[in-house]
Design a protein around this nucleic acid. Structure first.
Lengths: 240, 240
DNA sequence: ATGAAGACTTGATCTGGATCAAATCGCAAT
DNA sequence: ATTGCGATTTGATCCAGATCAAGTCTTCAT
């Protein structure tokens, strides 16, 4: 499971990019052409399996990644094992924490994913040198901050049913397969992961999903695939 | 109560700085000398009373502030009145959301405070022009993001007693009056505000505070002033 | 001083979600 | 097909924290 991770850790600035030049633009949409080439020379495209830990909580922030495909969950665990997912990242988000040596959270692939990896010193040097890169990372940090605060409201003040509806809404917003009203998507997360995102137990998540199914708001095509016939009906379940 | 706010809203780029030059360095410690002068010419020092709303949720982000003294709470409210505090800001933090027109949260003085106010267009222009300002705002955004995620763990996975202990620890960390082991501080927040920060009710907050008092971890000098004889004992209450 | 209105504490009871305990459902290996 | 195992659902019970209901303590106006 951790093979991919140990390979990643061996990367240095002198490692050549293997195969990603062609699709770099997808990942780094906010960067200028010059930066793409610069990153391309020193980065490495990697496939990681679902469950693979990209960054470990408490480890050194020795490299950074761009997500090219898949979903990455950011996770905090307490000494006694209690666990909270504190963010979900989708392509083309950036994963890593500039300017801090030790990671306060772990990043783990929630689905099979592809990431573009490059070393810490390169990123931090480029942030200092390149206005546009700093600006896009600043913008992403502010967007993640808004998302984290929105989630604080969900964790602190919403009921279990509202929490589950909020998560479905969040994931649906990132799905491609949407018609005018209806949306279908992969959940990307197990019941246990959903529980850790929502501050609930797996039993409560399961019960609330069947509740939403019985009320006609969602259809559970199979254990990881959901259809929302009417997004407005789902949205109504979120607030009072 | 809202007098100060309406005054603030009239500020434009041409308003002269009244009396803050002397103490600008305190607020904008991360900025270079040139920026201090630049901000000084266009900013306005204001005193705001406890309870005064600095920014309203849903309103336009028409100005930004630096906190010079006091505590500011960031708050989200739901249509049905449920409410969650999503951040506490202390001097010399920056309050405001660059690059977004409408505010998704309100900012309210939790204590009497002094802030240094300047207009949106000035700040956004300066971010684009000044490397060091962008860098320091990017750094603050990342620190706030770490804090928000730490708080997500507290909201999602900690018990009521651990939540209250976490908040006391957070506020104590910003108090000046600390000896080697013991710390005394003003709470800055009412029981209702503490409840809204922790996702609890005021009754539960009150009960947990007396619990911590009876177990000897804190002394309640009066309703808003706490002494922690031993910070390590408080820290032990936070995790398992 | 006296009274009135908030803010806080304390007690009694209720309840949403946790915990404990079986099923049941995949699904991969044989 | 059968077995085994982990993931999920479902049911029964429990409990931490919510809700309801009095008090008490502060503060401030008269």
């Amino acid at each position: 499971m951790d093979v991919a991770r140990s390979e990643v850790l061996e990367i240095g600035t002198s490692v050549a990019c293997r195969s990603c030049q062609a699709r770099h633009g997808v990942v780094c949409g906010a960067l200028s052409a010059g930066q793409l080439i610069e990153l391309g020379r020193h980065s490495l495209r990697r496939k990681v399996d679902a469950g693979c830990e990209i960054i470990a909580q408490g480890s050194e922030n020795s490299f950074y990644s761009n997500i090219m495909r898949g979903v990455v969950k950011l996770c905090k665990v307490m000494p006694d094992g209690r666990q909270q997912i504190v963010g979900l990242q989708f392509a083309p988000d950036f994963v890593g924490r500039p300017f801090v040596r030790e990671s306060t959270l772990s990043a783990e692939a929630a689905t099979d994913a592809e990431i573009c990896v490059f070393p810490r010193n390169l990123l931090e040097r480029m942030i200092l040198e390149t206005r546009e890169l700093q600006r896009s990372l600043h913008a992403q940090a502010l967007i993640e901050l808004d998302a984290a605060r929105e989630w604080m409201l969900t964790l602190g003040r919403r009921t279990a049913e509202e929490k589950v509806a909020s998560l479905l809404h969040l994931i649906a917003a990132h799905a491609e397969t949407a018609t005018a009203t209806s949306t279908a998507f992969d959940l990307s997360l197990s019941r246990a992961e959903i529980a850790d995102f929502l501050g609930l137990t797996i039993e409560t998540v399961s019960r609330q999903l069947t509740r939403l199914r019985k009320s006609g708001v969602i259809r559970i095509e199979n254990i990881r695939h959901i259809t929302v016939p009417d997004m407005d009906a789902l949205a109504k379940k979120i607030s009072g």
